[in-house]
Amino acid sequence: MEQVYSAGVSVEKTSFGLANVAEESATSHVAFADILRVIIWGELSQVETLEGSKSLHSVFFSLQEVSEVLGLQTGDAGVTISDAARYLRLSSQAVTYILSTKDGKDEPYLETCGQLRHVGKMRDNINSKLLDEFKSKYQKLTDFCELKIALTNQKRSELEAMGIYPEWNLRNFKVEYFRVSDL
Results as ranks from 00 to 15, higher is better:
E12Q: 08
V38N: 06
S55Q: 06
L70R: 04
L56A: 01
K13N: 12
V38C: 15
V21T: 15
V59E: 11
K174R: 14
I35H: 07
T112A: 01
F134E: 00
A22F: 13
R89Q: 12
L88Q: 02
L151G: 05
N172I: 00
Q3W: 09
K174T: 12
D124N: 07
L72V: 03
V9C: 03
L99Y: 04
P166C: 03
G71Q: 01
I164C: 04
E48H: 06
G120N: 13
E111L: 07
T27C: 02
N125S: 08
V9Y: 07
T142C: 09
S157A: 15
V11Y: 04
E111R: 13
S92Y: 02
G71I: 00
G8R: 04
E158S: 04
L50V: 13
G75M: 03
K135T: 01
S58W: 04
V47R: 07
F32D: 08
L131D: 04
Q115D: 11
E65W: 05
L110G: 00
D76I: 01
S10L: 11
L50S: 04
G42W: 09
D182V: 07
V47P: 00
F61A: 10
R171T: 14
D182Q: 12
L44A: 02
A94S: 14
V11G: 00
N169C: 09
N125H: 11
L151R: 12
A77W: 02
V4P: 03
W41T: 15
K54I: 00
F61L: 10
R156D: 14
N169W: 07
A33R: 12
S10H: 12
V69M: 06
Q3R: 14
F16M: 13
T14F: 14
P108C: 05
E23D: 14
S58R: 10
R89D: 14
Y109K: 08
E160F: 10
L90H: 11
F16K: 12
E146W: 07
V79I: 10
A161Y: 04
G114D: 01
N127Y: 00
D124F: 03
S157G: 03
R179E: 08
D143W: 09
S28W: 06
I40D: 10
N20D: 14
K140D: 15
T142V: 11
L72A: 05
S15M: 08
E167Q: 12
Y177G: 01
Q154L: 15
K148Y: 04
V59Q: 10
G8Y: 06
G42L: 02
K148C: 11
I40H: 02
V119E: 10
A77P: 00
G42Q: 05
V180P: 04
R37D: 13
R86G: 15
Q73K: 15
F134M: 02
A33Y: 08
K155R: 08
I39K: 06
T112C: 08
